[in-house]
Design a protein around this nucleic acid. Structure first.
Lengths: 152, 152
DNA sequence: AGCAAGTTTAGGGTTAACCAAACATTTTTA
DNA sequence: TAAAAATGTTTGGTTAACCCTAAACTTGCT
C-alpha cells in the first residue's frame, strides 16, 4: 500500500552514488551530457561496466536510460545526487576551515568518506559552520530541510 | 626481496578491522578472551562466519589461531588494532569537541567512517586538537609517529 | 550504403559477506 | 567417567558489488 513512492528508502552502493554525483555535475552544473565513454574514462572502468551500472540506476528510477542514447538523472536521481553532494561539500568545508586543508585535498578526503557519513553528522557540521551555502570551490551546498538554523 | 616483512602493506576489509578492534578491547584492555561465540553474538553473525574471518586474519598473521582454542592478536594484529582505534578515537574527540555530540553518538558516528579515513586526515584532526591522549570515554589514543607535535 | 566510433550483451570472474547443517571437540555434570 | 550439553569447525552453498573480454549491435557520418 504505497501512498507515496518517493518516500521509499533508496539504497545506493558506493559506485552508484559516485555515478549519480558525476552525472549531476555534468548534467545540471555543466549542462554537458555524460556519455558511457565519459563515465568509463572518468572511473577507469570498461564501458560495459558503465552500462551495467546505468541499468541498475534505471531500475531504481534514478536515471532515465535509453539504449545507445544515454542516461539522464530523474527527479529522484537529482535529489539523491544533491544529498550526496551536500555531504561531500559540507565535509570539504570542515576540512578547509578546521584543518586548513587546501580545496583539492579536502575534496579527496571527503570523497573517501562522504558516502558513509550519516545525515545527522553532516547536519551537525553544517550547523557548526553556520549553514554554509558554498563549498571551498564555490559550488552550491544544497539545504536539507531537517537541518534547521538556530534562532538568531 | 622482502627485507622487513613488517613493512608489507596490510589490507584489511571492514569486518576484519572490526574484529581486530573488538579483540583488542577484550584481550588488551579488558584482559578477557574473545571466544567465537562472543564475537558471533557481538556482530550478530553465525559462529561459522566468525571462524572464517579468524582464519583469514590468521592467514594475514594478525592473529594466532588454534582450532577450538581461540585466537589471540599477534604483535602485528595489535599494531593494526591500535591504528584503527586511534582513528576511531580521534574522530570521537572531533565529534564531541566540535559538534557537542555525547560520547555514545560520537562512537556510533565514528564507527561508520573510521575504516575509510586516511591517516593524513586523522593526523590533521589530531594536531588541531593538540594530540589528545584520551577519547571522550577516557580510553587511550595511540600515538602515530608521523603525527608530529608543533614546536611550542 | 558502408564504416568507424561508440554501446550493449553475453558470459564470465573475484572478493567480501553471510548462512544452515553436519560434524568434531571440549566441557560439564550426573 | 561416560554421556549430554555447549561450543567450535567444516562443508557447501548464497548474494551482492564490483569488474572484465569478446562478440554483436546502433548510430552517425561520409
Amino acid at each position: 500500500m504505497w501512498r507515496c513512492s518517493l518516500s521509499v528508502k533508496i539504497s545506493l552502493t558506493l559506485k552508484e552514488g559516485k555515478y549519480l554525483t558525476f552525472m549531476y555535475r555534468r548534467q545540471v552544473e555543466e549542462d554537458k551530457r555524460a556519455t558511457t565513454t565519459t563515465l568509463a574514462k572518468s572511473f577507469k572502468v570498461n564501458p560495459a561496466t558503465v552500462t551495467e551500472t546505468l541499468q541498475k540506476l534505471a531500475k531504481k528510477k534514478l536515471v532515465d536510460y535509453t539504449r545507445y542514447y544515454g542516461a539522464k538523472l530523474t527527479e529522484r536521481g537529482i535529489i539523491e545526487a544533491q544529498k550526496l553532494l551536500r555531504k561531500h561539500r559540507i565535509l570539504e568545508v570542515l576540512f578547509v576551515k578546521l584543518l586548513n586543508f587546501d580545496a583539492e585535498s579536502a575534496c579527496e578526503e571527503a570523497a573517501k568518506i562522504d558516502h558513509y557519513c550519516s545525515v545527522d553528522l553532516i547536519n551537525a557540521i553544517c550547523q557548526t559552520y553556520e549553514h554554509p551555502d558554498t563549498c571551498p570551490c564555490s559550488k552550491k551546498i544544497f539545504r536539507d530541510p531537517t537541518c534547521i538554523k538556530g534562532w538568531c
